[in-house]
Amino acid sequence: MYSSDYILELKDISKNFGGLQAINHLSLKVEKGLIFSIIGPNGAGKTTAINLITGIYPPGSGHIFFEGRNLIRKSPYQVAHMGIGRTFQNIQVFQNMTVRENIMVGLHSRSHSGFLRCLLYTPMVRKEEKIIRQKTDAMLEFLDLDSKADLRVAGLPYGDQKRVEIARALAMEPRLLFLDEPVAGLNLQETKEMSRTILKIREKGITVILVEHDMNLIMDISNIITVLNYGEKIAEGSSKEIQNNPKVIEAYLGKEF
């Protein structure tokens, strides 16, 4: 078993799209068990970084290690099997399925029956289904979705859909979870609930990497904050350190005259 304080390490990652340098020699170390936030102005490369780590884009150069294992050239589904969960900036719930079914898909990587077994519905499938159902019920309760379990996701309010997406990713029992703008579009009340949920996720021992524009939330719950601008890391530290960093202020507000 891998034992280091760092669950995720990026070494000198670069990525360009055509002529655009989206990520420029980025190195990061994420400590286990923390809420690690990535902030930065629009187009700073935050989502690109997540997509590189989770295998959606191949990086141009550099290395990514998760628990000591290289993530380069792994497909998204392989990354998922290794223990990394994620949500999407523009939510990607399965609209055609119920809340419960969405979460059950999250347990895909935790079960094994293949096509033939499922066609015959063998005892192994039956056993797995039972476990999937129990774990799904637990997850419904964890995110307070039990009353909506059997509704189609398509008809649910935006805030509920976001929670479904998180529940689905958590069902994978990941050790590292990426949340890409979890409170964008939520009202104050919903944002407060989401912040409590994120803290609850950390309590479970899951490392959370948070990309967000909501500074109140970031400053409230992050252990470490990294600031990106034009694909480069310009600062890293606690919320206090970041708030007083002149480079960060410049990136967000421009130079003082």
């Binding site: 589904y77 990354v79 998922a80 969960g85 999407f88 990607q92 399965f94 898909v105 994978m172």
Partner: peptide
Amino acid sequence: GSEVAANSLGV
């Protein structure tokens, strides 16, 4: 429903 999401969940 969403191929990219299914993939990210290990399918």
